[in-house]
Design a protein around this nucleic acid. Sequence first.
DNA 1: AATGAATGAGAATTCATTCAT
DNA 2: CATGAATGAATTCTCATTCAT
Lengths: 189, 189, 189, 189
Amino acid sequence: MDKKTKIVQASIEVFKEKGIEKTKISDIVKKAEIAQGTFYLYFPSKLSVMPAIAEQIVLQLIKKVEANVALEAPLQEQLSQLVDAIFQVTGEFRDVTVLVYAGFSTTENMSEWETIYTPFYDLLASLLETNKSRHLIRETIDAARTAKLVLGLIETAAEQVYLYDAYDAQKEAEQKAELLTFLEHALRP
Amino acid sequence: MDKKTKIVQASIEVFKEKGIEKTKISDIVKKAEIAQGTFYLYFPSKLSVMPAIAEQIVLQLIKKVEANVALEAPLQEQLSQLVDAIFQVTGEFRDVTVLVYAGFSTTENMSEWETIYTPFYDLLASLLETNKSRHLIRETIDAARTAKLVLGLIETAAEQVYLYDAYDAQKEAEQKAELLTFLEHALRP
Amino acid sequence: MDKKTKIVQASIEVFKEKGIEKTKISDIVKKAEIAQGTFYLYFPSKLSVMPAIAEQIVLQLIKKVEANVALEAPLQEQLSQLVDAIFQVTGEFRDVTVLVYAGFSTTENMSEWETIYTPFYDLLASLLETNKSRHLIRETIDAARTAKLVLGLIETAAEQVYLYDAYDAQKEAEQKAELLTFLEHALRP
Amino acid sequence: MDKKTKIVQASIEVFKEKGIEKTKISDIVKKAEIAQGTFYLYFPSKLSVMPAIAEQIVLQLIKKVEANVALEAPLQEQLSQLVDAIFQVTGEFRDVTVLVYAGFSTTENMSEWETIYTPFYDLLASLLETNKSRHLIRETIDAARTAKLVLGLIETAAEQVYLYDAYDAQKEAEQKAELLTFLEHALRP
DNA sequence: AATGAATGAGAATTCATTCAT
DNA sequence: CATGAATGAATTCTCATTCAT
């Protein structure tokens, strides 16, 4: 693993443990097992690691969705697979998601988040588009806007499961079921 | 206004202006017009002000919703009023919301956020319950769970309008319209 | 108990617990159960409590010695009683002794310590003088100087028992025995 | 000279000048000619320098005694040389001794002082042992215990000369003479 | 490229002291 | 006399950043 990747991986872990505010560059380099000065060879600051982390998250999301959502399956199944995929990635990156998100809002270049998320938004939009042309979802739907709504809805639900509540498999199943019904009704013609 | 309230008010303002990372305690006390040491009489650190801020936000949400959502109105109108209320408060507190949210995920007890949000969740749940008993929304809905989904959905949509994009009134209207249709379909019988 | 006494008592306890350096006036007033401002009605600073504490120690020393050292007893017995008395008081005030001592050396008015200790030095000197006139101790002894030597010797021995070593009754007895033999030889004709 | 040594040396000097209470870390780093932050690379606090200082004092004591006390000389001469050595070092480190001592009693582990002093106690004990085998001192003496008594006695006497009284060479000589006689009688067969 | 000790500006924190009640 | 909230000057302490090796 090259040093840059080591830094990104270590940052994710440390941000998870301590949060952005309390994370020091010295924590990151310790975890990455590199020298203090080496960090600056790759990133100018703590926050500038964020985009790289965000890219990791988006990469995972795309990978999971492409691997698991069967476009030819019935809508209900597709949605279920989509929800599972997003829950999985959100669970894996736990609070990093919200931290990265907050990190961006701090750095003032919130639009960078948009840019990085674009490939995933596009994927979701095309997914909706396909279903629209197959008349499985409402025709009035604006695929691009709704993609964002859907993602926001699923991510928030996942966060509520993984962050807030003490984790409980039973609850997760119930929350997912409620979410799926909600989604289906929202989308179907 | 007592000193504690002054600190919370000043913190909100400074966090809005500078973000958490760049906010110094000296900024807060200056805005609050109190002495540096006085801060520590009420809060042990910058981050520990977060819960108090969260309470303010929830208070505003409740106030706005109670004032503007007419329970006897048709569902569509109620939802529209609800969305407007949440968009307004989210807009008012802009990035503070996400910062507070991120602050919590750091500050040990994410469950505190739940506790603070509970009154608002309850309000939304009872709103759904009323509509359920009037057969305006699906009978299969679990009011408590759905309340969280609805809030998550609306807040995320609002954040997408106020944080990401350079603000654009036209876009806001379109986003709201899409969101409302989405919501109506998700809830109605 | 009047407030001044309360302050002195509380100071002794807190100094014992935390040492002078780490003791805050707020610790003292908390222990004394008085208000912060009240302290300044009686003492201008933390260190100015020292003389009052020293006086307490000397008072105890004099009381113990006068009560327990029988002037008409044989030298060996007198010395044994003297050692017991000083060990007891040193034990009671543990490290406060050395802290007060250090406190004085800080305040630059080390001579105040001398002044406060004078009554006890005098008592020891007169004790030696009596024994000299009864030919129980060397005639070449300068009572005043030797009083200081004797006190220094016994106090140091006591401190070594009570401060350094994990306390051990067996060891204390042996240390006392060695000390007594040492003292007897040093003093006897 | 490495930075750690610089800090210890500077601390000794500043403690001598100002006492522990009034010494600021900024005074130490200024004297040591290092940056403020560098201090914290080696010591977590002002008081944690104490053990290192104590080691210096013990080192000096050992050096002086080994250089000046002639083991083959008559007892009286040996004791005189011992007293001179201890007086010299005590004088050199003046109030630092008592401050370090007080610092220890605060800093949790008084036993650390014992550990640091052990080499010097051992030296004194072996010195007594040699004289015992040459029948210059009492056979009943426990060398280890008596070493501590002797050191305590001499140090206290030295402190009384250097700390309490306004220094007076005449008095010093008289005090030393009285002390020597006292010691001789205490030790000799 | 990599290192990590050293730096020092700047922020956090403390706590003796005051003073209106 | 007594109180204790408020003060802010004085210190401690942190940590991003540099740079000689």
